[in-house]
Amino acid sequence: MTLARHHGGGVILLTFVVALLLTIVPLPEWARYARPDWVGLVLIYWCLALPDRVGVITGWFAGLLVDLVTGTILGQHALSLTIVAYLTQRLHQRIRLFPILQQAFTVMILLILHQLLALWISRIIGRPGAPWYFWAPSLLGLLLWPVVFVLLRNMRHVFRVR
């Protein structure tokens, strides 16, 4: 595991930066609650593609940045994304072999877990419960996964991220 073997770290960083930007870009009022969890999707992709490079630590830092940009308490997204990254890293050999639809459902389950943890934490600190559309980002994640997957895979091949 020498550093010379690693290639395209900048590309990974760039995808996370774009995901963070998409997390705070202003949306119209009706669409604000249905903002896809871009950072979660990108993190899951990289954990599947390069589990030896992107994992728990990346997940934690990405989550911390999400906490900062969205104004939640520090550690909330860090915790849930860490766990999502861990599970993806653990199961990556299995998930990789799934057909794309099944993969998308697995991703949705991971995203639901991510949201569930966020919900628990916000309930613990005394915030009100969630309406039904709180789960919209996970459903959108299911629909978006094939797109995100193809896009990032092509990107990975073009820039030879290893």
Binding site: V56, I57, W60, I73, L74, A78, T82, Y86, I125
Partner: peptide, 24 residues
């Protein structure tokens, strides 16, 4: 790296919990 992922998980989960408690 197998075992170290789990160790990392526990370290970072603990770290985020500490952060949350301190922040809140």
């Amino acid at each position: 790296q197998g075992p170290s992922i789990t160790t990392r998980l526990f370290v970072f989960v603990a770290l985020s919990t500490v952060l949350m408690v301190m922040d809140h």
